[in-house]
Design a protein around this nucleic acid. Structure first.
Lengths: 205, 205
DNA sequence: TTTTCCTGATTGATCAGTCAATAAAAAACC
DNA sequence: GGTTTTTTATTGACTGATCAATCAGGAAAA
């Protein structure tokens, strides 16, 4: 059956515009209570066209979430690629997690909203689990070079919790640590826990 | 003007029922997308009656949030009342924050939803700030007995972030530390940071 | 007989999603 | 090369459903 379809090629641009508009609208509204109309308007098209490219509103949200997750993944990979030692790699992960891009108000608000959405939408939950699992395994990879497996597990949990907590407090504006402070907080935690777990710095493994 | 109104006295019970039903519904739905109808049904009354006791749906949500915050406050006070040393008090605060009551799925889901709600509703934001501020000042009160003010500030921020992060991860079910593990995580953080800050255990102050 | 308590029915708004219609580009046909 | 047909892109108008909030009315208590 089908040959390749001829494409006029508006589709990718339109989809990207919708995804970006969705993140902005969610960030501004601070909730999922944004209408397809609002999103479409910000993306410069009619609501009907938004439905032409995405079957349902939920599909738009998921695409936006996937976009944020992908961007984050790229950021982490870019950072860790330069790192030479486990320690450097861990710091790179922290820095990526707390990068200015991820710390933008709009993005933080969107994350928070997606966390809530994950309680309802199985697909959203799946995406968030992929993120959590990848972060955990990234941390584990570097940590097990420094401490025992069970210690590494605890430390990874602590770091991830702290990072997520910093985000949620940032979303709430008040009393949240700023970026450099947040970084220092997580780095200190990493340093102290690794030190206590008895660093074996041998690169045997 | 008015004399005391004669009360048949259904009001407190009905309000309490609505608040409790709201938390359950939000917890179960995992979002604020619950209708007054659902809440009223679970509370055993007609939607119209719910509106008789609460002017708007938002007022119901805020009452539910206030309830959760109040319960949490009571839990903390009960725990810290028994504590004799700063260290004991800090552990009591951790335990209260991660108590089984607060860790109930329903309550965790409600918290998460309220966090999101705070991005829109100024009153919700205010309530959450009161909670954050009280937690911070409670922690500071005990921490300053052990370490310098600036160290205390950092440690309090780290603890609060970690606790909030544990919650958000718990709401997501997967890969979240269970209660004892969560407690150990925060206690370890407290112990290590206080030790590093140079514990002066003298009870002079 | 005034006040509290309670409900069924209704209203008014808001929206997600659909549809019919149109235009323009690309492909197919002659 | 010119005409017809298909495909993609786009919209305004509509529909169907959902719900918050209101209201008019009624019963029991004080």
């Amino acid at each position: 059956m089908g040959n390749e379809l001829p494409k006029v090629g508006q589709e990718p641009a339109r989809r990207a515009a919708l995804v970006s508009a969705t993140i902005s609208e969610i960030g501004q509204a601070g909730s999922l209570d944004v209408t397809v109309g609002q999103i479409a308007k910000r993306a410069g098209m009619s609501p009907a066209l938004a439905h032409y490219y995405f079957a349902t509103k939920d599909a738009i949200f998921l695409a936006a979430m996937r976009h944020i997750l992908t961007e984050f993944g790229l950021l982490v990979r870019a950072g860790t690629a330069r790192a030479r030692t486990p320690s450097e790699r861990l710091n790179a992960i922290i820095d990526a997690s707390l990068s200015s891009e991820q710390f933008a108000d709009e993005i933080v608000a969107a994350w928070l909203v997606f966390y809530v959405q994950a309680q309802r939408s199985p697909e959203a939950a799946r995406l968030l689990r992929v993120y959590a699992r990848r972060l955990h395994s990234n941390l584990m990879h570097s940590l097990t070079a420094l401490v025992s497996r069970s210690h590494a597990h605890s430390i990874a949990e602590g770091m991830a919790s702290m990072i997520d907590g910093i985000y949620i407090r940032h979303a709430l504006q008040d009393s949240a640590p700023d970026r450099p402070r947040a970084r220092a907080l997580v780095r200190d935690y990493l340093r102290l826990t690794v030190a206590e777990a008895g660093a074996r710095l041998d690169p045997t493994h």
